[in-house]
């Protein structure tokens, strides 16, 4: 009779090499990479016009607005950029010749030790970001090996992960969750929604970007960001390097 132990052994180790090696193509779908013009100096007018969220400008692409809808692909764009669209400042999410240079990953945000306890708050998401965040605990990404743990109480948390576009109904709850986290603490905005409103940026009656109501320390772009990018964002809180920087 088969048993769980046999099943586990038969399945073997599935865990990714990331972040000790760059993410593989199996881990990152086409839309998991940041978009940019195929020919880096020229942005076709049609690409600027085609973008439903206005992320594309003449010399920059605002990754914080991009919802990875792929409309610009037929207009001289490609998803060939970084897997980790992670930044410590909102302005650094822009890519392209007109963008501000991204600071090298600086020191940790605070005196965090080797482990980070993460508390997830959904302020109005489509559920995809929630599931990608939970996904970093699956055997393929195994966040625990990197000292990243989910906690069910803000009192035990170091990092507040926020997914979704802030709705008026969730404004008060998320502020109270933030207040309940003991210092030092960090806020990570996961996905286009909390960064810029994403696909819902022009919807009536919403609160607006998360950094209007909370101090955001790390931004991770994507719609939704891949688990690899989310791992990198949480590691950025502790000032840990990316694979390319390690090598």
């Amino acid at each position: 009779m088969p048993s769980w132990i046999e099943q586990s052994i038969a399945r073997g180790i599935l865990t990714t090499r990331y972040p000790h090696a760059p993410a593989s193509d199996a881990e990152v779908p086409l839309t998991g990479r940041a978009p940019g013009p195929k020919d880096p100096g020229t942005t076709p007018r049609s690409a600027i016009d085609s973008c439903p969220v206005g992320a594309i400008a003449a010399t920059t692409v605002d990754q914080g607005k991009c919802i990875r809808c792929a409309r610009c692909l037929a207009r001289g764009f490609a998803f060939a950029g970084s897997v980790e669209s992670v930044a410590r400042a909102r302005a650094e999410l822009k890519t392209g010749p007109g963008a501000v240079p991204t600071a090298a990953r600086p020191v940790p945000l605070a005196e965090f030790g080797r482990s980070l306890h993460v508390f997830l708050v959904d302020v109005g998401s489509c559920n995809a970001c929630n599931l990608e965040v939970l996904g970093i605990a699956n055997p393929f990404y195994d966040s625990q090996r990197l000292g990243i743990f989910f906690t069910n109480s803000p009192r035990h948390a170091d990092v507040l992960l926020v997914v979704g576009v802030p709705t008026p109904e969730m404004r008060e709850p998320v502020l109270r969750a933030y207040d309940a986290i003991p210092a030092p603490k960090a806020v990570v905005a996961v996905g286009a929604c909390p960064i810029s409103g994403g696909a819902f940026a022009r919807n009536p009656g919403l609160v607006g970007p998360l950094d209007g109501i909370l101090p955001v320390d790390v931004y991770v772009a994507g719609c939704p960001p891949t688990p690899v990018a989310i791992l990198d964002a949480i590691r950025a809180v502790a000032g840990r390097a990316r694979p390319a920087e390690e090598a």
Binding site: D122, V123, G124, S125, G164, V165, T167, E169, M170, P173, F200, R202, N203, P204, G205, L206
Partner: peptide
């Protein structure tokens, strides 16, 4: 319900 309404129907 109603905490996550992104007002999609109207938008």
């Amino acid at each position: 319900g109603g905490f996550k309404s992104r007002r999609i129907r109207r938008a």
